[in-house]
């Protein structure tokens, strides 16, 4: 029962991290955040009303009590209601997260698959012009701001100055065709930017594997180049590749879609977060920050455990 023991130990090791990320979001958003009293009260409140609301919000409680209360909110997923429209935060999350996934998943998958493919081609032709061309393209992709890429693709594909093939902004998933119409431009922008970083990173990983002794031995045994690349190099490079993929999941769900959704007006979690940032909607903000950070820690732990199951070389330390 090595693996079970290992998993339990890993999970216990994750507790300080989870406490840490919740503490950061608690300190920044709740404890040192703006005083909510007067934005929640109506005009001309009495002293008694103020005192009542302050005790309701927990402002008269000591630090530890308020932090524990915050932890309870996270565990029970009960963050109260949005200050903007009184909708429960949990129902906002349930409504918007699927939209964000539908938006960012195609770009995420394509960006990584194409990244690995281009990296393989570049590494295969290392030092030749094709390699230089691909890496030059990657350097360009890395240097252009995501925002510029989004606007650029919008001009090229959606505006009347360009090809005018797709809607300028908005979101509609009623039919697959509509979905395709709205998801194409954001996806192209995501892939373009992701390719720069991914190709560079994956090429470095693959080239590193190429110079290993076992690859040289395999080559000496006369294994054909294509088989060498698939069996001996790509398979062995999977650990850093999978790590990068898993670690970027929370990022694409929130950070990536924040810009895309606020720009294209797509009603996903990123748009809600953007609204919450702009209007200072504390319940939404604290829910999003805490949940994504916890999600990230959990994803990290799960990858570690998966490695242990999949790859016998990972030590049981």
């Amino acid at each position: 029962m090595d693996i079970l023991q290992y998993s339990i130990r890993k999970l216990i090791a994750g507790i300080p991290l989870i406490l840490g990320v919740t503490l950061v979001s608690f300190l920044l958003i709740v404890y040192f955040g703006p005083d909510q009293t007067y934005s929640l009260l109506g005009k001309n409140p009495t002293a008694a009303e103020i005192a009542e609301l302050r005790s309701q919000l927990g402002y008269d409680q000591p630090f530890v009590t308020r932090y524990l209360q915050y932890l309870r909110e996270i565990v029970t997923l009960d963050f109260g209601s949005s200050q903007a429209n009184d909708e429960k935060v949990s129902s906002i999350l349930a409504r918007t997260i699927p939209v964000s996934l539908a938006l960012s998943l195609p770009g995420f998958v394509l960006g990584n698959l194409l990244g690995v493919a281009l990296a393989l081609v570049a590494a295969y032709n290392r030092g030749r012009w094709l390699d230089k061309f691909i890496m030059g393209f990657a350097a360009v992709g890395m240097s252009i701001s995501f925002l510029i890429v989004i606007i650029g693709f919008q001009i090229l594909l959606s505006s009347s100055d360009g090809l005018d093939l797709f809607p300028v902004r908005g979101w509609d998933t009623s039919t697959p065709l509509q979905y395709l119409r709205y998801v194409t431009v954001p996806t192209l922008a995501t892939v373009f930017v992701a390719l720069g970083y991914n190709t560079r990173f994956y090429r470095a990983v693959i080239v590193e594997e190429m110079t290993r002794d076992h690859v040289r031995t395999a080559r000496a045994f006369g294994i054909p180049q294509s088989q060498l690349f698939y069996k001996n190099i790509l398979k062995n490079s999977m650990i850093p590749i999978v790590t990068r993929v898993v670690f970027s999941i929370p990022l694409i769900v929130i950070s990536g879609s924040l810009l895309l959704e606020s720009y294209f007006g797509i009603p996903g979690i990123g748009y809600v977060t953007y609204d919450a940032i702009v209007t200072g909607d504390q319940p939404v903000l604290k829910a999003v920050v805490a949940l994504t950070a916890v999600l990230f820690v959990v994803a990290q732990l799960l990858t570690d455990i998966c490695y242990r199951i999949v790859d016998p070389r990972v030590s049981l330390k």
Binding site: P16, L17, L27
Partner: peptide
């Protein structure tokens, strides 16, 4: 190491948002 792990786990844009929110 703990501080690094914690700050690494909060997505960048949200950390900016949270800091901007708390610094008003």
């Amino acid at each position: 190491i703990w501080i690094m792990g914690v700050l690494d786990s909060v997505p960048f844009i949200l950390l900016v948002a949270a800091i901007a929110y708390s610094l008003q």
